[in-house]
């Protein structure tokens, strides 16, 4: 399930939902992305996250479908927050359960790499000198290329 929401999420609740009544899941991998205090060498006060409602969900569904072709995924969950976020706030959750750890590890990395380069979200950084939209980063483009 995909959720785009302003509210925070609870890691324990999400883990519980990934494994509830499923004894086939021998592995669960979860990733949480958070608002960091320093980005590219300057101090960050917070973030504003914008998205393209409708396309975001569609792009993420396509990313999940691609992951399901590559790995044995039992359950999966993606949550991405939008709106105003403070330092240390959670931004994104990706969780995958699988019979074995290799599939779960790879699938979560793949989902994050594609989410960062394909899903229509935009970050605006709040700094001491005002707010500025972030540029896409070459390292994220390189990260997604390894799956091609």
């Amino acid at each position: 399930m995909i959720s785009i929401q302003q509210n925070d999420f609870n890691l324990g609740d999400e883990y519980a939902a990934l494994v509830a009544a499923d004894t086939a899941a021998g592995a669960v991998v979860t990733f949480v992305g958070r608002v960091r205090d320093v980005n590219l060498g300057h101090e960050v006060k917070g973030l504003h996250l914008e998205h393209y409602p409708g396309m975001t969900e569609k792009a993420l569904q396509e990313i999940v479908a691609q992951a399901q072709l590559r790995w044995q995924i039992l359950r999966w969950r993606i949550i991405h927050r939008v709106g105003d976020l403070q330092l240390g706030d959670n931004i994104v959750f990706v969780g995958v359960s699988s019979a074995h750890r290799e599939d779960a590890f790879h699938a979560v990395e793949f989902l994050m790499d594609y989410l960062k380069t394909r899903a229509p979200f935009w970050k605006k950084e709040l700094t001491a000198n005002g707010s500025v939209w972030l540029d896409s980063q070459e390292k994220d483009q390189r990260a997604v290329k390894r799956w091609e």
Partner: peptide, 26 residues
């Protein structure tokens, strides 16, 4: 219509076209 395309793509009545910068989520 919520799928990334090239600028040469044709458009029809009722279509939704969006322009935006490279994405920076996650």
């Amino acid at each position: 219509n919520q799928t990334v395309v090239k600028i040469s793509q044709t458009v029809q009545p009722g279509d939704e076209v969006a322009f935006f910068p490279p994405v920076t989520g996650g």
